[in-house]
Simulated assay, not measured.
Amino acid sequence: MNDFFEQVLNFASETTARIGKQLMQDFGQVQASQKADGSLVTQADKWADREIREAIADAFPSHDVLSEEAEHTFYGAEWCWVIDPIDGTTNFTRGIPIWGISMGLLYQGTPVFGYVHFPPINQTFHAFWYGGEKNGAFLNNQPIHTSPDSPSHNHFFCLCARSTSVLQKPFPCKIRMLGVTTYNFVAVASGTTLGGVESTPKIWDIAAVWVILQAAGGVWVSLKDEAVFPLQEGEDYGDRSFPTLTVARPELVPVFQPLVQFLGNKK
């Protein structure tokens, strides 16, 4: 790992640890308000967003930032962070201990580093993917890889709240719903589940885990006829969703994609 990426990793680790420590004090104790898209936001989200953006400005002054709570437009910067200060705000407000801080770093519009810290369960995932090489994915600094197993009713597949209609037909795995996009997808990366689907994830939900999943050997499938990355200069990503299927390996794409492909056609 070169000096720059060592700096990036240390920065993400120190920043999320600091932010996470304070968020644990607010966990289950704050009131939420509803945004225009129906999702929840708290003062803790806004505080964490501001703290992370200020930390990036101090450490990497030439880098841009996209954030769920602030800037939504990609202006074409060579380096750009995409952050979600609390992924899983509903869980956070209700005292459910699965929520995390997500930070992805883009180079020329495509993620090359992902870092997601889940304070309540002491799990931190990160990965690098640059120079055309997969450079490994890690959980608490230990290497992880997707599962080699075949689907069965003793294996898991994760849905989001907006994709439960897939259960109108028989499904080859047990279903779980975690309520957090990033954890849905890193569960595939770590081998906990064989796949997962999210019908309305935004760019800050997926930038970091896009790297982690693929570096761990998983497959990212867009359910729309468009690539997510690279981001397009001048594009406002505030209202754009990217229906996504993730699976543990290529052989599972034809197993699961026909069951969830229709989610890509939803408005």
Rank of each mutant, 00 (worst) to 15 (best):
Val247Glu: 07
Val221His: 00
Lys266Val: 07
Leu105Gln: 09
Val260Ala: 04
Trp99Val: 05
Gln34Met: 14
Val247Tyr: 07
Met1His: 11
His72Glu: 08
Ile56His: 03
Ile121Ala: 04
Met103His: 02
Arg162Thr: 13
Val65Lys: 02
Thr110Lys: 15
Asn141Tyr: 13
Thr110Asn: 12
Glu14Pro: 01
Gln43Leu: 05
Gln43Glu: 14
Thr146Gly: 06
Gly191Glu: 01
Phe256Asn: 09
Asp225Ser: 14
Asp45Phe: 04
Gly20Asn: 02
Thr42Phe: 10
Trp210Cys: 11
Pro172Leu: 09
Val197His: 00
Phe5Glu: 11
Thr110Met: 12
Glu71Ile: 10
Gln261Pro: 02
Lys202Phe: 10
Lys266Thr: 13
Ala127Gln: 00
Ser190Tyr: 00
Glu233Gln: 14
Asp236Phe: 11
Ala207His: 11
Val228Lys: 06
Arg53Trp: 01
Asp149Thr: 01
Phe4Glu: 09
Pro111Arg: 04
His155Gln: 14
Gln29Phe: 12
Arg18Glu: 11
Gly195Gln: 00
Gly195Met: 00
Gln108Leu: 13
Thr89Ser: 10
Phe118Leu: 09
Lys267His: 12
Trp204Ile: 05
Ser199His: 02
Thr181His: 08
Val260Ser: 03
Arg162Trp: 05
Leu40Ala: 04
Leu245Tyr: 03
Pro254Ala: 10
Gly234Tyr: 08
Arg53Asp: 07
Gly234Asn: 11
Ala227Gln: 14
Glu78Gly: 08
His63Phe: 15
Gly28Lys: 09
Gln168Ile: 11
Ile56Thr: 02
Gly28Gln: 07
Val82Leu: 02
Lys224Thr: 15
Phe229Asp: 06
Arg53Val: 09
Glu226Ser: 14
Leu213His: 07
Gly114Met: 04
Ser163Arg: 05
Gly196Ser: 14
Ser163Thr: 12
Asp239Pro: 00
Asp37Leu: 06
Ser152Ala: 11
Ala32Arg: 10
Val166Asp: 08
Leu213Met: 07
Arg94Tyr: 08
Leu259Tyr: 07
Asp205Lys: 10
Leu178Ser: 08
Gly136Cys: 11
Lys21Cys: 12
Ala215Arg: 03
Lys266Trp: 08
Asn265Leu: 12
Leu194Ile: 03
Leu106Glu: 09
Leu213Ala: 07
Asn140Met: 07
Gln232Val: 15
Gly264Arg: 02
Cys160Ser: 15
Gly179Arg: 10
Ala12Asp: 01
Ser241Gly: 13
Ala215His: 02
Glu233Lys: 13
Asp45Gln: 06
Ser150Leu: 14
His117Tyr: 14
Asn154Glu: 14
Asn135Cys: 10
Thr181Glu: 09
Ile52Asn: 03
Leu252Ala: 06
Ala36Met: 07
Leu178Pro: 00
Gln31Met: 12
Val228Thr: 15
Ala36Ser: 14
Gly264Trp: 00
Ala248Pro: 08
Gly104Gln: 06
Thr246Glu: 03
Phe138Ser: 00
Gly132Pro: 10
Pro230Arg: 05
Gly217Asp: 03
Met103Cys: 10
Gln257Leu: 12
Ser102Ile: 09
Lys134Phe: 07
Pro61Cys: 04
Leu40Asp: 02
Ala70Pro: 01
Gly104Arg: 03
Cys80Ser: 14
Val221Cys: 08
Ala70Phe: 09
His155Ile: 00
Thr244Val: 12
Cys80Gln: 04
Pro111Gly: 03
Val197Ala: 01
Ala216Ser: 12
Asp225Asn: 15
Gly20Tyr: 00
Cys80Gly: 05
Val8Phe: 04
Phe118Asn: 01
Lys266Arg: 14
Gly104Pro: 03
Thr182His: 05
Gln7Leu: 10
